[in-house]
Design a binder for these strands. Structure first.
Lengths: 152, 152
DNA sequence: TATTGTTATACTCTATAACTATA
DNA sequence: TATAGTTATAGAGTATAACAATA
């Protein structure tokens, strides 16, 4: 069936993208987690470690470790929180900011390369299809979660 | 730009699918690795542990561990290799086979649910687009690998 | 009393190296 | 000499629990 073939392809593509990303990142001494952390700070501004833990769904303790690594690499730094003396704020260094900007650019270039030769309409059509797949999948996951609640 | 939005969506979908799969598997005491192992045996027939290590791109030592876990769960068993007394063959138990069949069915059902209401032509059109994205991505990865060869 | 971050500790996943039995 | 699998060991990644400083 074609429907299953499409599904398998999406899984395949997802595996390819992920493997490639991990290879690229490890070449510059990063991994998915540390990059996610920097990406969050880059887009949301200075964050407390607790906020980062919430965003990334990992423990605060683990954020401490990740931040330590990024400080070692001169990509972020800790600053006292302006209003809460218990907390610190994580900010990107210049090097960190410029790395995030480079990544964003690479990202755009890759997106363009992968859809090269498609008309804008084609891009829009596929985008809208994928959107419905995401929405439906989210609905199914919610349903399953509700089911588990009821059973438990 | 729309092209980047599509790319981001594909990444998002991939993360959703993966997280969901891991949750489902952990509910039945499996993970991505052990499932991959069983899937390989289910589709390729009885395999030596070395063959499994090749297929999964992990060490033979790690295959030993994964097989031990699956034996503990009564999902596979070891059998002497018919022609090579150094080796063993991994086979699925009845329970293991039936689990793989259930998974294949769930997989088909999910693919259908996610594309519900799409015409066959629409499915085919999106499939063909994703195919070109995969092909192009593979080409880019190869190019980058060749580049690294030359530099090294 | 609750929250932020850290010290101490442990668990999971996976790898490398040395070894046994067999090819 | 090379290969299949295992014993022993170690490293990365991540979690839980207890604690200090502050809210």
């Amino acid at each position: 069936m074609h429907r299953e073939q499409l599904f398998d392809q999406l899984l395949h593509l997802s595996a390819l993208l992920q493997a490639d990303q991990e290879r690229e990142l490890s070449a510059i001494g990063l991994n998915t987690r540390t990059t996610h952390l920097m990406w969050a700070v880059h887009h949301r501004g200075p964050l407390m470690q607790r906020e980062i833990a919430d965003e990334m769904q990992v423990t605060q303790r683990h954020v401490t470790t990740l931040v330590d690594e990024l400080i070692e690499a001169h990509l972020v730094y800790r600053e006292p929180h302006p209003h809460d003396r218990r907390a610190v704020q994580i900010r990107l260094t210049e090097k960190g900011t410029s790395l995030m900007e480079t990544m964003a650019l690479d990202h755009t270039r890759l997106a363009d390369a992968l859809t090269q030769g498609w008309s804008d309409d084609e891009v829009a059509a596929v985008t809208s299809r994928i959107e419905t797949v995401i929405a439906r999948f989210a609905a199914l996951v919610d349903e399953a979660a509700a089911e588990r609640e009821r059973t438990a």
